[in-house]
Write a protein that binds this DNA or RNA. Sequence first.
DNA 1: TCAAAAGTGTTCAAAATACACCCATGT
DNA 2: ACATGGGTGTATTTTGAACACTTTTGA
Lengths: 236, 236
Amino acid sequence: MPQHAINPNVSVDCVIFSFNNQELEVLLIERSAGNTDKVDEIKALPGNLIYEDETLDCAAERVLTELTGLENIFLEQVYTFGDPDRISKKHDQDWLRSIRAHPEARVITVAYTSLINKERFNLTPSSFARNAVWVKVKDVPQLGFDHNDILEKALDHLKQKIYIKPLGYELLPDRFTLAQLQKLYEAILDDKFDKRNFRRKILRTYFIVPLNEKQQGVAHKPAGLYRFDKSLFHQM
Amino acid sequence: MPQHAINPNVSVDCVIFSFNNQELEVLLIERSAGNTDKVDEIKALPGNLIYEDETLDCAAERVLTELTGLENIFLEQVYTFGDPDRISKKHDQDWLRSIRAHPEARVITVAYTSLINKERFNLTPSSFARNAVWVKVKDVPQLGFDHNDILEKALDHLKQKIYIKPLGYELLPDRFTLAQLQKLYEAILDDKFDKRNFRRKILRTYFIVPLNEKQQGVAHKPAGLYRFDKSLFHQM
DNA sequence: TCAAAAGTGTTCAAAATACACCCATGT
DNA sequence: ACATGGGTGTATTTTGAACACTTTTGA
């Protein structure tokens, strides 16, 4: 078997979320067609076939890096999609023919997800990603393949998780205000909370710790800044 | 493409749980080697390669039926396992060579799970399942492939789910006592609960409804029987 | 009459919810 | 001075946890 032989039947797709202080966003690529200058105006999640000799987790990390430049992202598996017709829409087939050796092969795909703070990373799209863009989750257009379903599933997964582990610090700056954190929760859960109750609940955890610093240059009472204390968190 | 062509790279495995009024059990098969009379004493989860033209969900249902005779089981996807070495242990390879066209092919597997009341189903093992047996989860031996990992993940999944939706009525007779239900919860969550608090919490849901019947022939005060009211449940 | 499991209430602590006003800053 | 979002406390309800005795039946 040649090194880095491709498995034609299994792919991974990555659903990377970020937060712009108001809304959840997801990372999409604009597909360009292989070596030709053909361009495909349909957006998609970053994803591609796996290699024969890598784990699924590694494949997801590699594919994400190849397409978007994001490195060392902790990805978590969400769900596997295997409808036999999931890549057979005409438009998708046209595009696959331009980049794949076996565009008609049955492909099942394993979806992965992660949360990142987009300010901390540069996007350097390459391979068949002509571009990589952050799109508000609420504005996501019709995507290629079954990627709208995949996004939906990743969102459900995210909502579940935030109840169990208080996530989301990955999405915020190192130092953040409680209002920012609250907006993040509201964006993920698509809900509204009472400010006082939210603050009380967060501070009761003791791993969101106040810094002795305040916002500067805002035209209102400056908010106190907090940070997430990883070691305190892991103690519990 | 021939009808029912096999996809050599993707399989499904089924983790079917039942309950014997004391403990959780899981359904395992004893593998027999293809057309030969060779026998493999290692147990495994029921699973096999998928067909090119079926969904993953359908494949799981079909494979389960082929191997164990269980029909119309509602299966739910759990997780996908894709370590490149997951089927390459010598013993597993020996066995695969006796039943597969490409025993060395990379296979990723999608795990499915379900809960059933074993009293309601007959096991009629066939294909390469020489036998199908219920084994107490706590007594599960070393299984073939990575099936111990898969079982572990399915158990985690089950624990998560029972917090969200009160499951488990599938595992009990139509008419059951609250003590049986409590034992079931204790088995799944590997915990103990206070009887009074448990009963209160269950009855507060209103979809576990009392029948005007009691146990008969028990050498103690007979327990009242209850049933799960599906339509009341779905109203909430 | 005994053994075995069923059934039942109360108290306390913790957590969730609802709700309204003053404060610090920049413009 | 005013507009903006920051910050705070209390009362009520709901939920979860701990805990012990009496009842009914068959053997």
